[in-house]
Amino acid sequence: MIRHLVLFKLNDGVSKDDPRIPAAVAAFEKVGTAVPQLREWQIGWNITDRDIAYDFAINSLVEDREALQSYLTHPEHVAAAQLWREFATWVIADFEV
């Protein structure tokens, strides 16, 4: 199994009330039900206020590297990531569990 973590940081000048954000969050909500390779799918806003904190997170689980690649190239994932590129940057970690 592979745990796929993504942490998003809103770009300077962008806040959670930006009008683009509801559609971007909804797109990632849809990914959780649209991608059959996902074994687990959690998304959410950071609840702490620290300088080093990121703003939004994805925590997901897939079976193996092939499933991870299928997820990454799935049209729903690609579309959702494109929306987030407009106002955020992110870091990822993929590790075996």
Score class of each variant (00 low, 15 high):
20 R>C: 02
13 G>A: 02
94 D>G: 13
27 A>H: 04
33 T>P: 00
55 D>W: 03
63 E>R: 14
67 A>V: 05
80 A>Y: 07
97 V>H: 11
4 H>M: 04
24 A>S: 09
66 E>F: 06
60 S>I: 02
56 F>I: 03
33 T>I: 06
51 D>Q: 14
4 H>L: 05
65 R>I: 03
22 P>D: 02
7 L>N: 07
27 A>W: 00
59 N>Q: 09
83 L>A: 03
15 S>G: 11
17 D>Y: 03
90 W>F: 15
49 D>F: 03
40 E>K: 15
90 W>D: 10
15 S>N: 04
25 V>I: 14
25 V>M: 02
91 V>A: 15
43 I>S: 08
78 V>Q: 09
77 H>P: 05
47 I>C: 07
56 F>L: 08
20 R>M: 04
31 V>W: 02
1 M>C: 05
50 R>K: 13
95 F>I: 06
22 P>V: 00
34 A>E: 15
90 W>A: 15
96 E>R: 13
52 I>N: 03
60 S>N: 08
51 D>C: 04
14 V>I: 15
55 D>R: 03
38 L>G: 10
73 T>V: 06
75 P>G: 00
14 V>N: 10
90 W>S: 15
14 V>E: 09
71 Y>G: 11
58 I>K: 00
31 V>E: 02
55 D>A: 06
73 T>H: 12
87 F>I: 00
86 E>D: 13
66 E>H: 13
16 K>S: 08
52 I>L: 10
83 L>Q: 09
32 G>C: 08
36 P>G: 08
44 G>M: 02
7 L>T: 12
13 G>C: 01
17 D>W: 00
39 R>P: 01
2 I>M: 11
12 D>T: 12
75 P>H: 00
43 I>D: 04
85 R>D: 12
49 D>Q: 12
40 E>D: 15
31 V>T: 07
56 F>H: 05
62 V>N: 06
12 D>W: 06
58 I>N: 01
86 E>P: 00
51 D>G: 12
25 V>G: 02
16 K>I: 03
3 R>C: 06
4 H>N: 07
22 P>K: 10
63 E>F: 03
91 V>L: 14
81 A>G: 15
1 M>R: 09
26 A>T: 13
23 A>F: 02
50 R>P: 02
74 H>N: 09
96 E>D: 12
81 A>T: 09
88 A>P: 10
54 Y>V: 01
95 F>V: 09
12 D>K: 15
47 I>P: 00
9 K>C: 08
65 R>T: 12
48 T>N: 07
33 T>E: 11
63 E>I: 11
14 V>L: 09
35 V>L: 12
21 I>V: 12
83 L>P: 06
33 T>A: 13
83 L>D: 02
10 L>D: 05
64 D>E: 11
60 S>K: 00
39 R>I: 15
44 G>H: 04
84 W>L: 01
